[in-house]
């Protein structure tokens, strides 16, 4: 059966490279995924206030759409969507009182009880394929590529939706190893890039990003891999601004983890959506002769 797929708004525009490379890779690995026929923005952040239910409507509505489309599992690529949907799902599963109120409010929708399982693609690959099988599927191992795996926040925190232990995660490194790359340990792998703070408190936000980029630079990584479009914006797109204000930040190409996956699977260059990456990312791939032009 096809697996439900929730893209999220950013993946349909600025992070098209995340979506394109992921969908091509999943297809190459034999997984059939199906975008939800109808979906809305998940809200990007999970409401933390005890008495604020209105902000749970968006993610719950998406979960209802997944259930109505007959999906038992829903995969996501954007870390923020994953976090928001997974937490809303737990709420609907375990908080009887809030579930009742939300279901009542959405009288035009079918009732929801947390039936759908929300999965991030990295975790999905580990469970459904496993790193050994992934290694076997690799056609172009990323030998000699030193990649700093950047988890960010929303795949690991809070604990109840963490794709693995938030204290000592290994999944991302294992994934990169399966692709033939060399994962580089660096102390800021799970630190926050400042997320949405970039729209309100720019200098504080750039400082948080600088800490991460500085640590990754010091680990002599060739590139930074991630799964969140907001992290990519702060650490990739705004890297020049970080560098101009903070010392010790080298030029570090950024990639979505699915782009590295697509390259390792030998998929053609057009599936990578590289026009959405910064110029340094393309240069690195050219230098390493990783790019395949389709026949």
């Amino acid at each position: 059966m096809k697996i439900g797929y929730y893209p999220g708004c950013t993946l349909k525009s600025r992070a098209k490279n995340l979506e394109d490379s992921a969908l091509a890779s999943l297809a190459a690995l034999g997984f059939e995924v199906e975008e939800l026929p109808r979906w809305n923005c998940c809200g990007a952040v999970f409401s933390l206030a005890n008495d604020d239910l209105i902000h749970h409507l968006a993610p719950v509505r998406d979960l209802i759409r997944a259930k109505d489309a007959g999906h038992e599992r829903l995969i996501t690529l954007c870390s923020m969507c994953y976090n928001t949907l997974a937490r809303a799902n737990l709420l609907m599963k375990h908080d009887e009182e809030k579930r009742k109120t939300l279901n009542l409010f959405m009288e035009e929708e079918s009732d929801y009880f947390g039936e759908v399982e929300v999965l991030h693609v990295l975790d999905f690959l580990r469970r459904e394929l496993g790193w050994e099988k992934l290694r076997a599927a690799v056609k172009r191992p990323l030998e000699g590529l030193r990649v700093a795996p950047y988890y960010g926040c929303t795949l690991l925190r809070p604990r109840e939706v963490a794709i693995e232990s938030p204290d000592l995660p290994v999944m991302f490194a294992d994934f990169l190893r399966a692709l033939g790359a060399t994962p580089v340990e660096f102390p800021e792998a799970t630190a926050c890039c400042s997320s949405y703070q970039i729209i309100a408190n720019e200098s504080a936000a750039l400082e948080a990003s600088a800490k991460i980029l500085r640590a990754a630079t010091a680990s002599s990584a060739d590139a930074l891999a991630m799964s969140c479009p907001v992290c990519e914006y702060n650490l990739g797109r705004r890297q020049g601004d970080v560098r101009s204000k903070h010392e010790g930040v080298g030029e570090l190409p950024t990639f979505y983890f699915t782009q590295l996956l697509a390259i390792a699977l030998g998929l053609p260059q057009e599936t990578l959506g590289l026009k959405w990456n910064e110029a340094s990312s393309l240069e690195l791939l050219k230098k390493k002769s990783y790019l395949t032009v389709s026949a």
């Binding site: 999220g8 708004c9 950013t10 525009s13 600025r14 992070a15 923005c41 809200g43 990007a44 952040v45 409401s47 902000h55 954007c78 923020m80 969507c81 997320s195 949405y196 703070q197 970039i198 729209i199 309100a200 969140c228 479009p229 907001v230 990519e232 914006y233 797109r237």
Partner: peptide, 28 residues
């Protein structure tokens, strides 16, 4: 409002991932 949506420079909104806009406006 802590942050007025219309005070964010248009060129920033244009390049910003939607997730950052949505999250930021929810928080601020």
């Amino acid at each position: 409002n802590y942050l007025a949506p219309e005070s964010i420079p248009a060129e920033r909104v244009r390049e910003m991932p939607q997730a950052a806009m949505v999250a930021g406006l929810r928080k601020f």
